[in-house]
Write a protein that binds this DNA or RNA. Structure first.
Length: 108
DNA sequence: CGGTTGACTGTTT
DNA sequence: TAAACAGCCAACC
């Protein structure tokens, strides 16, 4: 990936890098914060293009309602593992957004 | 330039 | 409750 900070992908990575440990954001939230309210899908595309070597906490980005987006490979499983390692709670197979969402109050 | 693609999402069956 | 549909977006080819 280029280091061109103006590109959408780069902006996605920069923003994801700012998600605090133990918290998660949805694709839609990331897109909205970048000024593209309906660019959730594009965010997913950006994370997909992310090199395995990149130091971007992509696991902190989940689908609406705290769902782990299904895709081929160990991705989903790895994501759950990493989140779990950050004490992120799950409810009904989904991340407890009420407690770990980026916009959630620090209720813990 | 134009059709395709996919780690999305809300609505409708 | 689960599956299908239909818009949306940026990058790809």
């Amino acid at each position: 990936m280029t280091l061109d900070g103006d590109r959408f992908f780069a902006r996605v990575y920069a923003l994801v890098l700012e998600i605090p440990r133990g918290r998660v954001a949805t694709y839609g939230q990331v897109a909205a914060m970048l000024g593209v309210p309906r660019g959730a899908r594009a965010v997913g595309w950006a994370l997909r293009a992310l090199p395995a070597t990149a130091r971007v906490p992509w696991h902190r980005v989940v689908g609406a309602g705290g769902r782990i987006s299904p895709r081929r490979g160990p991705g989903p499983d790895l994501q759950r593992r990493r989140l779990r390692a950050e004490d992120v709670g799950f409810r009904g197979g989904r991340v407890d957004m009420a407690r770990h969402g980026v916009l959630a109050p620090r209720a813990v």
